[in-house]
Design a protein around this nucleic acid. Structure first.
Length: 487
RNA sequence: CGGGGAGUAGCGCAGUCCGGUAGCGCAUUCGCUUUGGGAGCGAAGGGUCGCAGGUUCAAAUCCUGUCUCCCCGACCA
C-alpha cells in the first residue's frame, strides 16, 4: 500500500515531496540538486509551455535558440550581472577525459584557454548576437523568446521550487526607446499574471522589486508573487527592464531616423518549472495533487467497473460512447481499463495525480443510464444522468477552474495582514503570510528587517500610494510594501 | 559552509547499543479467486548492508577515514 500524504501541519516539506512522488511528477536525480521530471510532470509542463507560447506569439514574439555555453568573458561584461551570478556558475574547464587504470580522469592536456560557463541566464550570449543583428531603428524591436534549460549552482535545492538545473523560457527584447521597453516589461508581466491567475488558478500580486531583490543587471525588476499553502511567498515570475545596461556592455547601437547613434533599450522576462512547484503548493491536499482543468493533461478519467466478462463488455461499450461525446466537447479524457487493479486503487491513484474529474461507470449506471461523477477538488461524488454529460462536464470543468482560483484567493486573503508597528509586524510574520507595512525605502532598513525577522520585501505593489511612516525608523514612506518569508 | 538526521532489495524501513549464515512491508513475476474506495490466498525472483582501510576465528554491527543525500539556516527563479 502506498503511503498516504502526511499531515502537512507537521511537515510541509514532507507533504510537498509526498505529493510529487504520489503524483509521479518527478524524482530526485543522482546528480546533486537536479531532478528527473517524469512523464506526468512533463505533460503538465508541456501544457503550461503551450499556453505561454501562445500568449507570447499573441504579443508578437518569436522563438529562437542560443548556445548553452557562454564564454567567461561575455558574462563579465556587465558588472552587476557578473556580480550577481558569479557565485553560482557551473564552469567548463576541460574538453576531454582520458582512460586511466580503473576508469577515466580529466585530461589535463585539454584545459580550455577560456572557460565556458553553463548559462545561468542568456542575456550576455544573446546580446552578443544582437550587436550583429541591429544597425538601424528599422531592425527594432526584436522580440525573441527562448525555451531552454539553465544551471545555477544553488546551495540548497528543492524539487521544482529550486533545482540546480531548471527548464524555463526567457524572453529577450530590444527596443528603440525607453518608453517602448518599459511598456514591453509591463506587458509581459501582465501576460504572466494572466497565465498564473487564469490558467494556474494561482492568485498573484504584482509589483516592483527593491534594489536588493532586483535582477543582477536590471534597472527595474517587476514580479508576480504568490503565497503558498505553507504561508511562504514564492516569486513566480519576473519581467526586467534592463535599460541600456546590456547594450552598453555589448556595444549594441542603432541609427535612429535622424541618423544619430543610440544605445538599444532592453527587457528580459522569464518563468520556469518553479511554476509547477507553485501550482503544487497552491492546490494540493492530503489526497495529493490537484491540477486546474485548463492545464490538466487529462481532465477526465473514466474508471469502468464490472464483475463478469459480459458486464465488462457492456461497461466498456458504454464508456466508449462517453469518450466519444466528451471528445466532441474538446475534453481531454482517458479510460483506465486496467484489469489487474481494483476501482479503489484507481480512484486513489487518479486523485493523487490530480485529474480534475472522475467518472465511474458500473453495471448499476448502465441500468439507470447514469454515471458517477466525482470532483477532485471537493471530493464530492454525484450520480448524474448520462444524457447531456458532455455539456455538464464542460461546465463543471469551468466551475472547478473558478473554484480553485477562488479558494486559493480566499486562503491568501485570509493570510494577508496590514500592520503599523514593527512590534506587530514581528508577531504577525511568525505565522507567515503576506504582510503590508510602511518602509522608508532604504536598503539598511530592509536589511535590518530581514536580519531580525527573516522576512523580505517581496515587492512594492503597483498603485498603492498611501503616505505614512516607516514601521522601523518612523521616516516618511509613500506607500506600504509587501513583506513575507519566502522560498 | 554552520547545526541536525540518514545511507541495508525498485520504494519505505527494522536489525547496529550487546559481532555469529541479511530480514519485514509495499512493488515485481507466475497461478487461482477478486473488482462501486488503496484486494485475498499460494508460490517465486531480487541485496558484495554508500565507499576505503583497520580490529577479529567471524563485521551491516566495533574503530579510523571518506563520499553522498535529506531537513533547518546563509545564497537564490
Amino acid at each position: 500500500m502506498a503511503k498516504k500524504i502526511t499531515d502537512r501541519s507537521e511537515d510541509y516539506s514532507q507533504w510537498y515531496q509526498d505529493v510529487i512522488r504520489e503524483a509521479k511528477l518527478a524524482d530526485h536525480s543522482p546528480v546533486r540538486g537536479c531532478m528527473v521530471i517524469r512523464p506526468n510532470g512533463y505533460a503538465l509542463w508541456e501544457n503550461m509551455k503551450a499556453q505561454l507560447d501562445t500568449m507570447f506569439k499573441e504579443t508578437g514574439h518569436e522563438n529562437a535558440y542560443f548556445p548553452l555555453f557562454i564564454p567567461k568573458s561575455f558574462l563579465s561584461k556587465e558588472a552587476q550581472h557578473v556580480e550577481g551570478f558569479a557565485k553560482e556558475c557551473a564552469v567548463v574547464t576541460h574538453s576531454r577525459l582520458k582512460s586511466v587504470e580503473g576508469g577515466v580522469e580529466v585530461d589535463p592536456e585539454s584545459r580550455l584557454e577560456e572557460e565556458l560557463i553553463v548559462r545561468p541566464t542568456s542575456e550576455t550570449i544573446i546580446w552578443d548576437s544582437y550587436r550583429n543583428w541591429i544597425q538601424s531603428y528599422r531592425d527594432l524591436p526584436i522580440l525573441i523568446n527562448q525555451w531552454a534549460n539553465v544551471v545555477r549552482w544553488e546551495m540548497r535545492t528543492r524539487l521544482f521550487l529550486r533545482t540546480m538545473e531548471f527548464l524555463w523560457q526567457e524572453g529577450h527584447t530590444a527596443h528603440a526607446t525607453k518608453e517602448e521597453a518599459v511598456e514591453e516589461t509591463k506587458r509581459m508581466l501582465e501576460v504572466y499574471r494572466t497565465f498564473a491567475e487564469e490558467y494556474m488558478a494561482m492568485p498573484v500580486t504584482t509589483g516592483v522589486k527593491t534594489a536588493a531583490e532586483r535582477f543582477a543587471g536590471a534597472v527595474d525588476t517587476y514580479c508576480i508573487e504568490t503565497l503558498l499553502q505553507d504561508n511562504k511567498a514564492l516569486q513566480a515570475g519576473t519581467s526586467h527592464f534592463l535599460g541600456q545596461n546590456f547594450a552598453k556592455a555589448f556595444d549594441v547601437k542603432f541609427q535612429n531616423s535622424d541618423g544619430e547613434h543610440e544605445y538599444v533599450w532592453a527587457t528580459s522576462w522569464g518563468v520556469s518549472t518553479r511554476l509547477i512547484g507553485g501550482l503544487i503548493m497552491t492546490h494540493s491536499d492530503d489526497q495529493g495533487l490537484i491540477i486546474p482543468p485548463k492545464l490538466a493533461p487529462n481532465q477526465v478519467i473514466i474508471v469502468p467497473i464490472w464483475r463478469s466478462d459480459e458486464e465488462q463488455a457492456n461497461v466498456l461499450e458504454y464508456c466508449d460512447g462517453i469518450i466519444e461525446e466528451l471528445k466532441e466537447y474538446d475534453i481531454r479524457v482517458k479510460l483506465d481499463d486496467r484489469e489487474n487493479q481494483n476501482p479503489g486503487r484507481k480512484f486513489a491513484e487518479h486523485e493523487a495525480a490530480g485529474i480534475p474529474l472522475r467518472i465511474a461507470v458500473g453495471p448499476r449506471d448502465l441500468e439507470n443510464n447514469n454515471v458517477e461523477l466525482a470532483r477532485r477538488d471537493t471530493l464530492d461524488k454525484n450520480i448524474v444522468d448520462r444524457n447531456g454529460l458532455g455539456n455538464r462536464i464542460k461546465d463543471l470543468l469551468n466551475q472547478i477552474q473558478k473554484d480553485l482560483y477562488d479558494s486559493a484567493h480566499q486562503r491568501i486573503q485570509d493570510n494577508t495582514h496590514t500592520v503599523d508597528s514593527y512590534e506587530e509586524f514581528k508577531q504577525v510574520i511568525e505565522d507567515g503570510g503576506f504582510v503590508y507595512a510602511h518602509w522608508d525605502g532604504t536598503a539598511e532598513t530592509e536589511e535590518q528587517i530581514k536580519e531580525e525577522t527573516k522576512a523580505t520585501i517581496r515587492c512594492i505593489p503597483f498603485e498603492k500610494e498611501e503616505e505614512g511612516e516607516c514601521m522601523v525608523t518612523g521616516k516618511p514612506s509613500s506607500q506600504k510594501v509587501l513583506f513575507a518569508r519566502s522560498y
